[in-house]
Structure formats: C-alpha cells, structure tokens
Nucleic acid binder design. Structure first.
Lengths: 340, 340
DNA sequence: ACACGAGCTGCAACCGATTGCAAACTCGAT
DNA sequence: ATCGAGTTTGCAATCGGTTGCAGCTCGTGT
C-alpha cells in the first residue's frame, strides 16, 4: 500500500498538517522541519493522493479530452499536444474517443464533466444548448469549432483555403473542385466558404462535388465525380480524403499532377509519404492541443472558477501553412479556357 | 456546482447512506424509497464523485495507459482499443505519451501509479527491476513485452515472421533482408529470432541489415543497405519502416515487387494506401488493447487485490495474420540461385 | 521581569462518498 | 400483548488529504 501523509508525519515526527504545508506552502514552515519532512517523503516515496486533495480544493488536477476518432492521425496529433502540455502543468488527461458516434458524445461528455476540472472538446456534433449545459459542470474549451461564446481554438480555414486557391490559380487552374467532409461539420462549412470567397476574388470557378466521409474511402468514392466535373484541380476536405482521391485516380490512369492537381488539408505524416507526395495546408495540430490546454487552465484560474458566465471568452485562431509537394502542378494546357 | 449525495438525500427525504445504498446495492432498499431516491437523482442530475468513492474503496475506477508515441498509428489503435474496452467497464483512462523518451518513462509511470488502479504499459524500456517496483503501487499489464512474471499480452512474433518467410519462400525468394527496429526493443529481438528460425527451417538465407528507427525515416535510411545485400525480399520492422523503404526504392528506380519484395508488420491503415499496397503481417491492435484491459481488471478483481505477489501471471498471445497485397511478388529470375 | 509580536505547529473540522453496526419498524405467530 | 425474525434505515467512523484558528515558543524592547 502506498504511504499516506500520516505515515510521513509519523516518520518526520510532526503532524499531518505540517507535512501538508511543507509540501504546498514551503515558506510557511521552518527550514529544519521542512528538511525532516522532505527526508521522510523521500524515504517513503510518498506522493499525495490527488483525489483526496481534489475533494477539498474542488480541483482534481485532471482534464478530459474528447475526440471523434483516435485512429485518425489528425486527432492523434492533437491528443499528443494536449497530453504533453497537460503534463507540463502537472495535470492528468482522461481521453475519450466517441468513435464518430454523435449520440454517444453528449452522454460521454456529461459523465466526464463530473470527474474533471475541464474538458477539451474536439469538433463536437453536440448542439449549442447541450454545450452550454455541459459547461455548467466543467469548463469547456472547443477545438475546431466556435460556439455559444465558449472559449476555443480554431483554424483560420478561410485563410488556408485562400492559400490553396492562390497556389492553384498561380499554376493556371481556373476550375477547382471541392470535396467536402460531413455536411454538419464546422470545418466543412468554413472551408467551403473560404474556397468560395477565394475563388470569387481570384476569378476561379469552384465546383463543389458534395459531402463525403472524412476518410480514405471517402476520397476513393469522390474521385470519379471530381473527374466528371472537368476541373483541373481539386481541394479535398483533408489529407485522408486526398490520398483516397490519389489512389482512385491512379487506378483510373489519371495522372497527378499532370492531368489533375490535388490539395489536401492537415498535413498528416502520411501526406509526405503518399505518391505523389501531397500538397497540403499544414495545420498546427499539436499546437492546437497545447493552446487548448492553456486556454482551459486560464479559464479555470479565472476568479469565478468556471468562467462560463463570462460572455467574452477567449478565442484563438491558428493559421495554416501551404506545403507544396508533388501533387500540384501547372494546369493541363488542353483544359485551359477563360473562367467565364 | 454539481449535486452531492447529501443534496439528493435531502430532496428524497432520506439519509445519505440510503442514497448510497440505493445506488450501489438496490436490492437492499425498499422499492418505494428507491424510487424516491431515483427521482431525486434524476432531478438533480446527480452522479457520484468517483474520487470520493475511491478514497474509501481503494479503487478509483481509473486506469493508466502509457505509450511511446501517440502519433504512431500502431499505438493510436491500441489506445483506441484500451479506451473503448475501459469505457465498457465504466473505467476511465489516463493516457500518457512518453514521446519515445525512456528516461521520462520511469518517473511518469511511478507518478501515474499513485493515481490509478492499474496501468497498461506498452513496450516499456524500463528495466525489469523498475517494473517490479512499480507493480507494488499499481497493477501492471504489459503489452508487447513479457517480463518479470507480470501479466501481459504480446504478439506471437515468431509465428508472424514464419508466415512472412513462408510467403516469400513460396514466391521463390531465397535471400531475405531484415531491417530491425531499436535494438533494445523486445519486438525487434523476437522478430529477428522468429525470422532466423523460419529462414533456417525453410532453407532461406536471412541477412540482417541492422537497427533503425521504427519510422518512415528509418526505412528511408535502411533502403540502400537492403539493396546492397542483394536480397530479393526484405522484411521491415514495421509498416512505417516498410513505407520508408518503398519511397527510397522508388526514387532509386527499383521496382517493387518486380526487383524487390517488401513485407511490413502491423497493418496500419497507411499500409493499404501505400503504392504499391503493402503486404504485411496484420497485428490485432485494438484487440490487444481490449485484452490488456480485461487482463488488468481481472488482476484487480483477484482476491489479493494487486496480484503482483502471484508468480503465475496470465500471459496472452495474439497471432498475426499475413495480408498479401502488391508489394510482394515472385523473386526475380536473374537473382535466383541455390540457397547455399 | 514583563508584555508583545512574529514565526511555527497542532487541533479539529471538512470535502463526498462508503459501510459496520445498531435502532426502528413490520408482520405473523404464540 | 409479547416475542422473534426479517427488513429497512440512520448513525457515526473512515478514507487521505487541506486549512482556519488557536496555542506555543522565542526574541526583543522597555
């Protein structure tokens, strides 16, 4: 059995209160005593029980992280970032994977909320009202979505899409297809919007081909429709979709980038390993995780403890970065024509 | 603030003890009372504070998971499996990523051990003595390594490697290169051993080309040495390494599988997306996570509470499955020669 | 010699649950 | 009416910490 504060106290010949103070308010206890306590702690390998502390202070030193799918490299990276930053602050992380099941999500988050100080919620499909309710039990920070005046960190999708379109237009592309992710996804909506704006201002034509699963299979499924549009370039919802496109295009004998340029989003590790290596918008994934944790801890340290009452929540925006690899190239000359 | 058991008791007009019993030992309380309590619980949205319960029962309902790198799809899948199974048992999971830093690992695990009932430890580089020490604070289940009589789940590497070699030999390969992972890794050792045995009994020649990082870059680095051996096939430590090999071979103009067959291990999602699609030994990753959790909970439920005193620990073995894709093919005829 | 304040330390209450034990109640039998 | 057995319920102790408050010990100034 692990040593308790009483064991340490006995060994050091002081009261438990003194041990507690020696550890959390060192300047309050006599250096000599402090040393004796430290020795006892060392000898017993004592570490305070966080749970017990949590009962008193109301802070468990634990946060929760909810992601749709850990097997998705994007969320794996994000988790890594959250986890690293949390450890840096000596905070433990509960990880929950909803398995892309929105119905499970609400219940899971509510259950989690009781056990942690705060929650980092990634691209939740829970609706805004539900979110606000949850925010009563625990502080919530949103990733990749902004809503309900809750604090969060999101990517500047508009800017990223503008970079992608600018790159393609510079290569001579005038007709660009867009393979969206799940229709309800915040990212799909904002990326679609960003593409629309960028295309309009850069005099390119945008052809949305619909909504697909944010997976390799989704990309495979979308490929033929992309080809049918006659576009010379395509922007995919994310890298997985883009890689799916690549695979199907290859098996149809359509050459990338000679016949069709492909751009992804995320820059997961796989993007650089694809053939051809994928041009993509790199999103700082671990960075987002780190920032989310900082944001959460800030909210927790705020005087009112939870911060959900405060309407002005901090909202961070992260910019993406265009990574040009081999999947984009000059538009084929045969398809070139005026944009109107 | 969240409702406590006292709030529920007050609302239901009973004592806290009764509420506690109504929730955990329902048959012990009068149905009418039970109903009143249930109503109060419902109305207040009450959920017991796990931490408080943990103080009394000594069981926190929490387990820890330690992995070297979450961004590695292999560990991401494993985490997913652990997480899903744990939730099924209403157990929460702390996830810690050591960032492939063995020195951080020991400390991290010890800290974690105080906060959880048990730990699932993946391919730890901590040494056996350290492990035993840790097992005093919390139950430990090892994944992908067996040691110190601790319970664990591992892959039958020997069998997997035998399948790989048999496949290659059947295709006419007689000289097979082996790109190992980190020398200290348990998997590297066992896979190397399995290959050696399989090669010996199937009359093929095994050429180890050394130890490399278990990453894409490791594969890229190993490729030229593989080529230099003159082998007609190569088995890589894992799929990431295999994909790295594929990339470098491609850029050197070496055709896979016409000139060289490549086999990976793991069957991560990326393996199917590689070009050519990778032949590999599929390891049941989520399954391993699930089994590890079951094992851990079994150990925890054992009469002596921790089980580390019991020398006979359960050890599960999972078999891999050969997945043949496009990266393996008949040995080139020009290189064929007797195996001695 | 005495008062006073500063610096430490310990007592005891408390956080939110669980649980052994005993009290209270119910009901049927004597 | 009394008793005993069985069922339900509450009291109070407990887990491992934290913290307000009071008390103790000194050193110093007068």
């Amino acid at each position: 059995m692990a040593a308790t504060i009483r064991d340490v106290a006995r060994l050091a010949g002081v009261s438990p209160s003194t041990v507690s103070r020696a550890l959390s308010l060192p300047e309050m206890v006599n250096p000599a005593t402090r040393a004796r306590v430290a020795a006892a702690v060392e000898q017993l390998g004592y570490a305070p029980n966080r749970a017990a502390r949590g009962l008193i202070t109301g802070r468990t030193g634990t946060i929760g992280l909810v992601v749709p799918d850990l097997a998705n490299p994007f969320f794996a990276s994000l988790t890594k970032g959250v986890q690293a930053r949390a450890r840096h602050h000596d905070v433990a992380v509960f990880v929950a994977d909803t398995d892309e099941d929105p119905s499970a999500e609400a219940g899971l988050v509510r259950a989690l909320a009781k056990q942690v100080d705060g929650i980092v919620l990634c691209s939740p499909r829970v609706d805004d009202d539900e979110l606000v309710a949850i925010a009563q039990d625990a502080a919530v920070v949103l990733v990749n979505r902004s809503a309900a005046g809750l604090p969060g960190v999101a990517y500047d999708n508009e800017d990223g899409m503008r970079q992608a379109v600018a790159h393609l237009v510079a290569l001579g592309h005038r007709k660009i297809a867009w393979v969206g992710g799940p229709a309800t996804s915040w990212s799909t909506q904002h990326r679609g919007l960003g593409l629309r704006n960028a295309a309009d201002s850069l005099r390119a034509r945008l052809v949305p081909v619909g909504n697909f699963a944010p997976t390799y299979e989704g990309g495979v499924a979308a490929a033929d429709q992309v080809v049918a549009t006659g576009a010379t370039a395509v922007v995919a919802y994310n890298d997985l979709v883009a890689i799916g496109l690549l695979a199907r295009l290859h098996s149809r004998g359509i050459s990338v980038p000679a016949d069709l340029s492909v751009v992804g989003v995320d820059d997961i590790a796989m993007a650089g390993m694809a053939r051809p290596a994928l041009t993509t918008i790199r999103l700082p994934k671990q960075e987002a995780g780190r920032i989310a944790v900082e944001l959460l801890l800030t909210v927790l340290d705020a005087p009112d403890g939870l911060g959900y009452t405060r309407p002005v929540a901090h909202q961070d925006e992260l910019k993406g970065e265009l990574i040009v690899r081999d999947s984009t190239g000059p538009a084929p000359r045969t398809d070139r024509r005026p944009s109107h």
